[in-house]
């Protein structure tokens, strides 16, 4: 094989490898963003349903425990879902999530604790306690969104 042919082949191979790996990296960021957004939307879906049951007299009270358990499971996924630091992309996640990792961890711990206490209250059947623990859970959501999420543009 001629020397120039070998050089050209090597160049093409490097170009394909480089662009390919960039594409994979971009896809990973995009996938990570979509995954964590799905987790957060799921949390929002259950929270909206819980509000209707606990505070708006929706008759599906028998669903409450399932929603509470789902919230407990889903809030336990937040840390892992935000593990990958992304930059750019269609996201409202602030870089502070990763630059202030200990603060974010503490905020997520608060959410998990509040979700656990809400789950326990929902299981107890005590309506007053359930409403109180829902308020406490919402406070932790707000605390995290205030510091680590950009407002909608």
């Amino acid at each position: 094989m001629h020397r120039w042919t070998m050089c050209a082949s090597l160049g093409v191979a490097m170009f394909i490898g480089l662009t390919g790996s960039m594409a994979i990296a971009a896809e990973d960021d995009e996938g990570a963003i979509k995954y964590r957004q799905s987790v957060m939307k799921s949390i929002g879906g259950h929270t909206g349903a819980v509000y209707q049951i606990v505070k708006s007299n929706n008759p599906n009270k028998s669903h409450l425990q399932a929603h509470a358990r789902a919230l407990l499971d889903l809030t336990g996924m937040i840390s892992a879902a935000f593990q990958r630091q992304t930059s750019g992309g269609k996201t409202r996640a602030k870089q502070k999530i990763w630059t202030d990792a200990s603060g974010f961890k503490s905020a997520v711990d608060d959410v998990e604790t509040a979700a656990r206490e809400f789950d326990a209250a929902a299981s107890s059947g005590n309506d007053t306690e359930t409403a109180k623990k829902l308020d406490a859970l919402l406070d932790t959501c707000k605390g995290c969104h205030k510091e680590y999420r950009e407002k909608k543009k």
Binding site: D135, K146, K151
Partner: peptide, 15 residues
Amino acid sequence: SGLLPDGDVAGGIMA
């Protein structure tokens, strides 16, 4: 409480 009808919760200045 900051809870929106779709289950999202307020953030930023509004929180």
